[in-house]
């Protein structure tokens, strides 16, 4: 089919309009990603002889990954971190907040402001604030609280490091969950709930049979965003524990940083980053398939 002059002109205009975004996308997303893949096949380093003369090492970095216990540990820690903070913590608390905010609560605006507040603090600032609350010694906030109840204080980031970073990340992410889930809830017509109540459904039945199924697309979208963004969390964990003690909180982003900028092994760090990228992509595809919608 021959395209008309008008269609060609529109196509050219569209390309012109899109080209700045396209160029930025290529320069800052696609090129670095492709370059990372290339780096992962080399022994590129920031220091030593490999910095002067990097060479192609094929799949050696990937083969090293398979036998690297610290890498597998970081995957496990990342999995627990994502499940604990994004899937369970943020989602459950975000959903409860969203449901509560639909009701005519006293101090409703104050409540929503409190939930939104953690997002106002930059990641690293929030991290240091939590360090002061979770530190060892009798002056730390949490230690004071447990001492008030006659319990022994501890250094929380040392004794329960993974639990603590899950708590902190949950605290920080509730607002996003709440906003998304509130939007999802508001799309369900009130008449549906009224009809269910008139048919004698109790609150639990309404929640299980109506609210949850109708909110499923929003929930899956939230899960996608939250899981991928939690895999990429770096600043908060770095400020709190730097991946310690003993790798107990070494999530994959920290592991990539440690390999690339502490051990200065850019090639190996890039290989880990590529694996993280693949995991995020697989997660994304799985969620999109589950949603059965085009994103």
């Amino acid at each position: 089919m021959v395209r008309s002059t008008y269609e060609k002109r529109v196509a050219r205009q569209l390309l012109l309009i899109l080209s700045p975004s396209l160029l930025l996308l290529i320069a800052f997303v696609i090129y670095p990603a492709v370059y990372s893949v290339y780096l992962s096949f080399t022994n590129e380093a920031l220091t030593g002889a490999a910095a002067l003369n990097p060479r192609f090492v094929g799949l050696r970095n990937y083969s090293r990954l398979l036998h690297d216990a610290k890498f597998w540990n970081s995957l496990l820690v990342t999995f627990l971190f994502v499940v604990g903070s994004a899937i369970i913590g943020q989602f459950v608390l975000g959903l409860i907040s969203a449901i509560l905010l639909r009701r005519n609560l006293a101090f409703k605006q104050l409540f929503s402001s409190i939930i939104l507040l953690p997002n106002a603090a930059p990641e690293v600032v929030a991290g240091f604030m939590w360090i002061s609350m979770l530190a060892g010694g009798e002056n730390a906030t949490l230690s004071r609280i447990v001492m008030f109840f006659g319990m022994t204080p501890t250094d929380w980031l040392q004794t329960f490091p993974l639990t603590m970073i899950i708590v902190v990340n949950t605290w920080r992410g509730i607002a996003t969950a709440m906003i998304l889930l509130t939007a999802g809830l508001s799309t369900i017509p009130k008449e549906v709930f009224e009809a269910a109540r008139m048919d004698g459904a109790n609150p639990s039945q309404i929640f299980r049979r109506i609210t949850l199924p109708l909110m499923m697309p929003t929930i899956l979208l939230y899960m996608l965003i939250s899981a991928v963004s939690t895999i990429a969390v770096f600043g908060l964990v770095y400020a709190l524990t730097r991946g310690g003690p003993g790798g107990a909180t070494e999530v994959i982003s920290i592991y990539i940083y440690n390999q690339s900028f502490t051990a200065f092994q850019l090639g190996y760090g890039a290989a880990v980053a590529v694996v993280a990228l693949v995991i995020s992509l697989v997660l994304g595809i799985a969620y999109v398939r589950a949603m059965k919608v085009q994103v």
Partner: peptide, 28 residues
């Protein structure tokens, strides 16, 4: 090291300890 790798590091710099020097030499 990132700046040295990128070729835009300052003209004169120090290393924290001896341990880094031989590797920096090897890196040119």
């Amino acid at each position: 090291l990132t700046e040295l790798g990128a070729g835009n590091a300052p003209d004169i710099f120090s290393a924290p300890t001896t341990a880094y020097v031989a590797d920096m030499v090897a890196a040119g």
